[in-house]
Amino acid sequence: MAYLTRNALVRWLMQNPIWGFVLIVFIFFSLMTDHFFDLRNFQNILVQTSTIGLIALGMTLVMINGNIDLSVGATLALAAAFAVDVQGWAMFATWGSWQILPAVTLALLVGVVLGGLNGFIVWKTGVDAFIVTLGAMLGIRGLVFVYTGESSFYAMNFAYSDFSALKVGPLPVLALIFLLCTIAVHLLLSRTVHGRNSYAVGGNREAAVNAGIRVGPHMMVNFMIIGFLAALSGVLLSTQMGAATPNLGRDYELWVITAVVLGGTKLTGGKGDIIGTFGGVLAIGMLRNGMNLMQVPAFYVYVILGSILIAVLFLDKHFNRQAEGGLRL
């Protein structure tokens, strides 16, 4: 019996090598540094990863659906700029802390609209999402610079910049938002019709069409969700900094894709899940945090993360090779 359960655990870990890796990293840093194993630090890790984590949730949807979104970093920056700028507009001057509401709403809306636009173009033109969102990434980043005039916006409302310091019990509010979103997207992907159809479209588009699934709307919805999450991430990041800078969110698309791929989602679509993505996000978060505590110079962190990415994917391939070989793809 004990053998059986252990066996099931081993098999689960072989299918989700990232969680084995998370475990190893956790133990490693707990032993190697004094400050890693500490509730404060865990809170820190969750807050630090929440920005990348939120977008990674959306990226999982989009990638399972057979697409990719490279424009998330730029969308994040534009949403942050809106959130910080709009609350200072004269028309909301008398609103007190309520001025945050229209600002954040507008910022999130911007994310949804931009995501929807990406999705719409991919759907209607049939151009590869990689190309479409690469263009969007450049274009939106350009808009950010036009909008901000190449300088930063600062939040004048203290309620805004204090938000990120709030806690619910032991959980920082940013971590809480990330965890709630994780659960929500997990349920969306694993339990709803939209989630099921997203897998089908990414797995075999022709078969999905033949089953009467409307491919385009599903793709568009997923792009809107990732746009929303990128914008939300931008808003949260700007509350942490009390400002929005034009370079906010640079390279985020790379971190996000790394986390998602580490979590076992396939670039070819049709495969992946949120549990894996959550593991990938935690792995990156702990590595960055732990190496920071060990005072590893920042550039080595990149080298190490890059190597780990390749190593984990190699292990994944190795464990699952026999099974994949038999898959009549």
């Binding site: 897998y199 797995g203 075999n204 022709e206 078969a207 089953a211 699934i213 049709g270 495969k271």
Partner: peptide, 17 residues
Amino acid sequence: EQGLVLTMNCRDNMTLP
């Protein structure tokens, strides 16, 4: 090519439409 999503399980394929 036209009938199955090979990366999905049997049940999900059967109930897809």
